[in-house]
Amino acid sequence: MAQPTLTVDLGALVTNWTNLSRSASRAEPGAVVKADGYGLGVDQVAPALAHAGARTFFVATAEEGAELRGLLGEGPRICVFNGHMAGDAPLISQGKLAPMLNSVDQMVTHLEALPGHPFGIQLDTGMNRLGMEPAEWQAVREIALAQSPVLIMSHLACADDPRHEMNARQLSAFREMTDGIDAPRSLSATGGTLMGPDFHFDVTRPGIGVYGGLPFFDALPVAHLEVPVIQVRDVAPGETVGYGNTWEATRPSRIATIAAGYADGIHRIMAENAFVYAGETRCKIVGRISMDLIGVDVTDAREEPASVEMLGNHQSIDTVATAAGTIGYEILTSLGGRFTRRYTGG
């Protein structure tokens, strides 16, 4: 079968979530499952996390929230980061979702359309992306708190770098805006969770670390991508491989053509810096990554491989992301629809 296999280890996923939860033991551990469970399949990821004990889930849109409600049933709370957008009222109401209101306008929309329906508030503590700024919050704070919001949250801009001075600035701003309120608070996703109890508050929102990514250095790999070899050929010194003649053999080489490409989320730009593994042997990608095919130098492999590992125990999503000049989030959420998907450990 010339189709790559993406194996998602739900046991590793749950272990990562559990370990992040233990690092913030005084806070309730939520779970971020937006973007189809970071590309790994929310229909598998979310039930596994719910079974492990997650009771608060976070998605980006009301549409994602409605789908998640269908998967999880009545019990868990589902918070929508993008808040209450125009036309969302039926989804929010029927899905029993909690929009995280990001502006005075969203608050007015929500209270008029769905009076008495649960909501949360997102505050801007310096990221300048989503959330009420201090003056807006001051203007509606008493009205909002009188409605008993389910959560007051903000988001850290630089939590992947614990030493960045922005973290302390945002923590101070969040405390200034929320200290003394009678509502649960949340500031930290994965990075903030790892920075210690000052950042934990009442609810944490682990995301990328659950799926095996940085800044959770101790994360177990969750995504394992195995790509079949279609053909192996001998290439003599001076011969080239792939479009544009960008790679030329300098020794007698064995070149495997593998069945994946940029149509599958293997970014074309990473070719110059990327490797795969044939067994325990690290093998260089050679030539350009094309839509469906990639060349790999397997000359030094102990035996001719039937497949190679693109993601898994030998290299993480962040290793591959570095080769592409991007981040692990983009690697995960770009993984293509042509893969055969298998789930283990759930």
Score class of each variant (00 low, 15 high):
5 T>C: 02
6 L>P: 02
7 T>V: 11
7 T>K: 04
9 D>C: 01
11 G>T: 15
14 V>G: 01
16 N>Q: 07
17 W>L: 02
22 R>N: 00
23 S>L: 13
30 G>C: 08
30 G>W: 10
34 K>L: 06
37 G>A: 03
39 G>L: 01
43 D>T: 10
43 D>M: 02
44 Q>A: 12
44 Q>D: 04
47 P>E: 05
53 G>E: 06
56 T>P: 00
57 F>V: 12
60 A>Q: 07
60 A>C: 07
64 E>V: 09
65 G>D: 01
66 A>N: 01
67 E>F: 05
68 L>P: 08
68 L>N: 10
69 R>N: 00
76 P>A: 15
77 R>N: 00
78 I>N: 05
86 A>H: 10
87 G>V: 15
93 S>F: 14
94 Q>K: 12
98 A>W: 13
99 P>V: 04
102 N>E: 14
103 S>A: 10
108 V>W: 14
110 H>Q: 04
122 Q>E: 14
130 L>M: 07
131 G>P: 06
136 E>W: 02
140 V>H: 09
147 Q>L: 05
148 S>D: 11
150 V>T: 12
150 V>E: 08
151 L>D: 02
154 S>R: 11
155 H>D: 08
157 A>T: 14
158 C>K: 14
159 A>G: 07
160 D>C: 11
160 D>E: 14
161 D>S: 03
163 R>E: 10
164 H>Q: 09
170 Q>H: 09
174 F>E: 00
175 R>H: 12
178 T>K: 15
180 G>P: 00
181 I>F: 09
181 I>T: 11
182 D>C: 12
183 A>D: 03
192 G>S: 09
193 T>L: 12
195 M>K: 08
203 V>M: 04
205 R>N: 02
207 G>H: 12
208 I>H: 07
209 G>P: 12
213 G>L: 03
222 V>I: 03
223 A>I: 05
224 H>R: 09
224 H>M: 06
230 I>K: 08
232 V>Y: 08
234 D>V: 15
234 D>G: 14
236 A>N: 03
236 A>V: 08
242 G>M: 11
243 Y>C: 03
244 G>E: 14
244 G>D: 12
245 N>V: 00
247 W>V: 09
253 S>Q: 06
254 R>Y: 03
259 A>I: 11
261 G>T: 15
261 G>C: 15
262 Y>I: 07
264 D>N: 02
268 R>E: 06
269 I>W: 01
272 E>P: 00
273 N>P: 06
276 V>L: 10
280 E>D: 10
283 C>M: 09
283 C>T: 11
284 K>C: 01
286 V>C: 07
290 S>Q: 09
294 I>Q: 01
295 G>A: 13
297 D>C: 12
297 D>V: 14
298 V>M: 05
305 P>G: 06
306 A>R: 09
308 V>S: 01
310 M>Q: 05
317 I>V: 15
317 I>M: 06
317 I>W: 10
318 D>W: 09
318 D>A: 02
319 T>I: 06
321 A>G: 07
321 A>W: 06
324 A>I: 15
325 G>F: 07
326 T>K: 02
332 L>V: 13
337 G>W: 00
342 R>D: 08
343 Y>V: 11
345 G>Y: 14
346 G>F: 15
